[in-house]
Simulated scan of single mutants.
Amino acid sequence: MTHAIRDKRKLLARVGRIRGQVEAIERALEAEAGCETVMQQIAGVRGAVAGLMAEIVEDHVRNHLVDPQTHPDALDQNATEQLLAVIRAYLK
């Protein structure tokens, strides 16, 4: 992921927010918060991790699979966008 270095700060910030969300789940469990509260927090973490995964997958697809300079037989732009839309929908 050397090409992702330019986005390193942004990615690390997302991971930091996810860490904070996980710590909030831990605090909620320690405080014996209600099931609904804990489940909502878990759902939030799941969504945040899925968003991070979608960003990493999209970057991988664009930079390693469909870059026409690197791969002349790569998917065209429309096919790339269709593929990424399916991946984003799956990861939600």
Rank of each mutant, 00 (worst) to 15 (best):
H71N: 14
E23L: 15
D59E: 12
I5R: 13
M53Y: 00
L83I: 08
E58N: 05
V22C: 10
T70I: 11
Q69L: 14
C35Y: 06
A89F: 10
V61R: 01
E26K: 13
M53N: 01
A4L: 15
Q82Y: 00
L52P: 01
E30K: 12
V86K: 07
G34L: 12
K92D: 15
A79G: 01
I18T: 04
A43Y: 01
V38A: 11
T2D: 13
A54Y: 02
R46I: 10
Q82G: 01
L75R: 06
I25Q: 08
Q40R: 13
R62V: 11
E32I: 06
R46M: 11
V86I: 15
G34E: 15
L29I: 15
A89Q: 13
T70W: 00
L91K: 01
G20Q: 06
R6K: 14
A74T: 05
T37M: 09
A28T: 04
K10I: 10
T70E: 13
R62K: 14
L11G: 00
A89E: 14
L83Q: 10
A13R: 09
L65N: 02
H71G: 00
E30I: 06
D7H: 11
D59G: 08
E81H: 07
C35I: 07
E36G: 06
V57F: 09
K10Q: 13
I18H: 06
L65Q: 03
V15W: 03
L12D: 07
R19M: 14
H60W: 08
D76Y: 02
Q69R: 12
M39W: 00
L12N: 01
G20Y: 05
K92I: 04
E58M: 03
Q77H: 11
P68K: 04
G47C: 05
T80F: 05
V61S: 03
R17G: 15
T80Q: 12
Q82N: 09
D67V: 05
A74I: 07
R19Y: 05
I25L: 12
A24V: 04
P68R: 08
R88M: 08
A74P: 02
T37I: 13
V38K: 04
E55V: 04
G47W: 03
V66A: 12
M1P: 06
R88V: 11
G44A: 15
Q41I: 02
H71F: 11
Q21V: 04
I18D: 09
I18W: 03
I25P: 04
L52C: 08
A89N: 12
A89I: 01
L52R: 01
H3C: 10
A48M: 10
I56V: 15
A74M: 07
N78T: 14
R27M: 10
